[in-house]
Computed example of a mutant assay.
Amino acid sequence: MVVVTLSVGALLIAVDARTWWQAVILSAGVAAAFVASVQWAAVGIPRVVRPCLIVAAAVWVVGALVLDAHTAFYGISVVGSLYAPKLPRHRALAAVTLVVFIALVGAARLLIAPTDVTEILTFYVLVPAGVTVVVTGSMFVGQVFYDLVEELEDTREHEAELAVVQERMRFASDLHDIQGHTLHVVKLKITLAERLLGVDIERARNELKEVRALVSDTIAQTKELAYAQRRLNLPAELENAKNLFEAAGIHVRVEREAEVDERATELLGQVLRETTTNILRHAQATYVKITLSATGISVLNDGAGTTPLSSLGGLSTLQERVADNGGELRVEKRDGRFLTLARFPSGRIDQ
């Protein structure tokens, strides 16, 4: 848009300016349109817009009443049409005021050249006002589209946050499954041991040994859960990943080239869970492609940005575990896409 604004403005100056000082004045209007176009992508109405609007309006007045330059409306038409749709309120009124102002200034030339009615009405009223109506109307349509895109983006971000919350709730549920049942059993066994103290010391001692073993096992399971090392089921993780991505508004595609070796499902499930969490938290993904093969899994997503690849985060621990079991885990980042690939070459799975 900036290139088009500047190019069209330069062409109009070349066509309409007859002297160097006319070119300077018309250039001021084009410059105002150029600056307004550069700032158009900013949120809200930048401060520079008001000076641009004043300069462009002054150029149109001088061009119509002094220079006999019917293209001098270009600057005010561009600046006004760009920012009228972005006003927080009274947008339609601003657009109508813009068109009326341009038409009235053009009609005011009749006071200077009352004999050229047809030419003035055509080139100073109808053409400038008509062009402004068309451009402003198109910008209103575009603004509606941009507002819709922004609203959809906000909705997508909220859905992604909800997906992350859902993942945390699932983690809390797993933790409850591990510790809730254990604590209930421990309570019952301690109660039983208390009753057996005065009756059967040996049996009470055995009950306490079972409690200690149960607590030790629970501690180990909790550590495994905290470090994403709990035994996972790949099909369940795949279904969970699909649900999370779809809830976040991300298109997900799953391709099964072959059935995954059952000995690799635990590690691959952990890789998929960690990758899913990373995508939801750190990427602005619109699609995810998950490919399952006989020797591994690959996850490809967009929205990875252009920043250099840094630490793997939670994947670094899994990278070591996969390597210890005869496989490899690597990531690639290129052209805004992120690839996570875990595989066991030549079917070698040392689990």
Rank of each mutant, 00 (worst) to 15 (best):
L341F: 09
E328Y: 13
G347F: 01
L318Q: 04
T306S: 15
S346N: 11
T317A: 10
L292E: 05
G303E: 12
G313V: 01
A323V: 04
L315W: 12
V322K: 03
T307G: 06
T295Y: 01
A294G: 02
G296R: 04
G326N: 08
R330G: 08
L292A: 02
T317F: 15
E328P: 06
E332I: 10
L318P: 06
T291Y: 01
S293C: 04
V299N: 00
G327K: 00
R337G: 03
L315I: 13
G305H: 03
G305I: 05
L315H: 11
T307H: 12
G326I: 09
P308C: 05
L329Q: 08
A304L: 11
S293A: 04
P308L: 07
T295D: 14
L315Y: 06
L329H: 10
S311I: 06
S310W: 03
L309N: 00
L292H: 01
D324I: 12
G336V: 10
T291M: 02
G303A: 13
G336R: 08
L341H: 03
G313R: 07
A323F: 07
A304H: 10
R321A: 14
V299M: 06
I297K: 00
E328K: 15
G305Y: 06
L300V: 14
R321I: 11
F344N: 04
V299L: 08
A304G: 15
T306V: 14
T291C: 01
L292Q: 03
K333W: 06
L315T: 09
R343V: 12
L312Q: 12
F344M: 00
E332S: 13
N325K: 08
G314M: 12
S316D: 15
R334P: 08
R321Q: 13
R343Q: 13
T295Q: 03
L329W: 11
I349H: 00
D324Y: 09
A323G: 11
K333E: 08
I349L: 02
D335L: 11
S346L: 08
L315R: 11
T340H: 04
L309M: 10
T340D: 03
S310K: 11
L329T: 10
T307K: 13
R330C: 10
L309I: 09
A323P: 04
S311V: 05
G314Y: 09
G313L: 05
I349M: 01
G313N: 01
E320H: 08
T295H: 09
G336L: 14
L329E: 01
S311T: 07
